[in-house]
């Protein structure tokens, strides 16, 4: 497996990313991030998180403060819901943090871990980012992509499909 660096992921909802892609498509595929934030009454700081997330997923590029819809982003908005989830799933698997967690879960006999253990790993890997927030983002994206599941009652973070 190719080495992929483990970077923090923005605390961002995937629904926002799809909203950004739709907005860009409506605007001919390219616009200024600042203008989009203003028009949608979205905090610029929040929009930057959305842009960053869309970029690490390969859906947009961000040259000089602009946001540009990339072919994969266009494909995402033209896909039906389950196809869209599949694209996100493949993209997540290629991100260092998610690849690491997949490997970690695969190494467990029952392919699951408690939240506490995952938090420890996150704290070691990314000491500058609050692990609780990161965990909740990982769970949300992971659930959406049907890559990870988390059962709060059983405190079980697990590999959804393998």
């Amino acid at each position: 497996m190719a080495y992929s660096p483990i970077n923090p992921i923005p605390d961002c909802q995937l629904t926002w990313v799809f909203g950004l892609l739709e907005t860009l498509d409506d605007r001919g595929g390219r616009d200024d991030g600042y203008k989009i934030a203003r028009d949608l009454n979205f905090k610029f700081g929040d929009l930057l998180k959305v842009m960053k997330t869309a970029e690490i997923l390969g859906f947009v590029s961000t040259p000089d403060g602009d946001v540009v819809l990339e072919p994969l982003g266009k494909q995402v908005i033209e896909s039906e819901i389950n196809q869209r989830k599949l694209i996100v799933r493949e993209r997540l698997k290629s991100l260092g943090l998610f690849a690491y967690l997949v490997r970690l879960l695969r190494a467990q006999e029952d392919r699951s871990l408690t939240r506490e253990v995952v938090l420890e790993h996150l704290a070691m890997l990314l000491p500058n980012d609050p692990p609780e927030k990161m965990f909740s983002t990982v769970v949300n994206w992971g659930r959406y992509a049907e890559l990870f599941g988390y059962n709060k009652d059983e405190d079980r973070f697990y590999l959804d499909q393998d």
Partner: peptide, 19 residues
Amino acid sequence: KVGLDGFEEAYPRELSGGM
């Protein structure tokens, strides 16, 4: 149909408004 696969066992407080 609504794209909630993977969220079956989540509780509302774990979800964003959109979800």
